[in-house]
């Protein structure tokens, strides 16, 4: 007997939560075979599992290792579902450009923000690590992004963050594109100082921050 839609969603969610990549792929195929809307499968299944993991992360029951494995399972499931996402769904989401500022290759924090932000229903354009300020701005302009999220772990590279804001101003995009910052050495004081729209101390808070600024 075939599984119900809710059972498939639960299977997807559990696969992510328990970091079972093979299960995530198997349930994603079941969702496709059952004709379930791919976006719904991602949001009600895979993303739900990531959000459950995020709760345990906040409660200090899951740590970075667990979240990274949950993300692998989520990504494996998304890969199966992605070709089946309707074009209209792709265009509807708030777009976030994210990356680690030039000179820094520490991208775990950025990856967690990306994963939880995607799980929160946003379209995330991940530029990776060691990203030049110009690349953030050019991508935001070309993609019509609403938010730029900047991360750095190093005190030595955080000075690249205000450059992004300067470039947005030069391009006349500052009013349209919000800028949020985070990472080990960053503080609310630094965010205020450089004129960012917000600062988040951790990945979970970053998602809430992106939600706040994108609605402002």
């Amino acid at each position: 007997m075939s599984e119900s839609k809710q059972e498939i969603f639960k299977g997807l969610s559990d696969a992510v939560f328990e970091f079972e990549e093979d299960e995530a792929v198997a349930y994603a195929h079941k969702a496709v075979d059952a004709g379930i809307d791919a976006t719904e499968a991602i949001e009600s299944g895979l993303a739900d599992g990531m959000q459950r993991a995020g709760v345990l992360y906040e409660e200090e029951e899951y740590f970075i290792s667990e979240l990274l494995l949950c993300a692998d399972a989520l990504n494996a499931g998304v890969e199966v579902l992605k070709p089946h996402i309707r074009t209209s769904d792709k265009d509807a989401k708030t777009k976030v450009v994210i990356g680690v500022i030039e000179g820094d290759t520490h991208d775990i924090g950025k990856n967690l923000v990306r994963i939880l932000t995607e799980a929160g229903g946003y379209e995330v354009l991940d530029l990776g690590r060691d990203v030049k300020p110009e690349a953030f701005v050019e991508t935001a302009a070309a993609e019509g992004a609403d938010v730029i999220a900047l991360s750095t772990l190093m005190t030595t590279t955080m000075v690249g963050m205000p450059k992004v804001i300067e470039l947005l101003k030069e391009r006349g995009l500052r009013d349209r594109v919000k800028v949020v910052v985070g990472g080990g050495p960053i503080s609310q004081g630094y965010a205020d100082r450089i004129g960012a729209d917000g600062y988040a101390p951790n990945a979970s808070e970053a998602v809430r921050l992106i939600e706040r600024v994108s609605k402002a």
């Binding site: 970091f19 970075i64 290792s65 667990e66 990274l68 494995l69 692998d72 520490h106 991208d107 775990i108 990856n111």
Partner: peptide, 11 residues
Amino acid sequence: GTDKFLKKLIR
């Protein structure tokens, strides 16, 4: 690579 290494703590 830190992310790969951290996953190995569990795997």
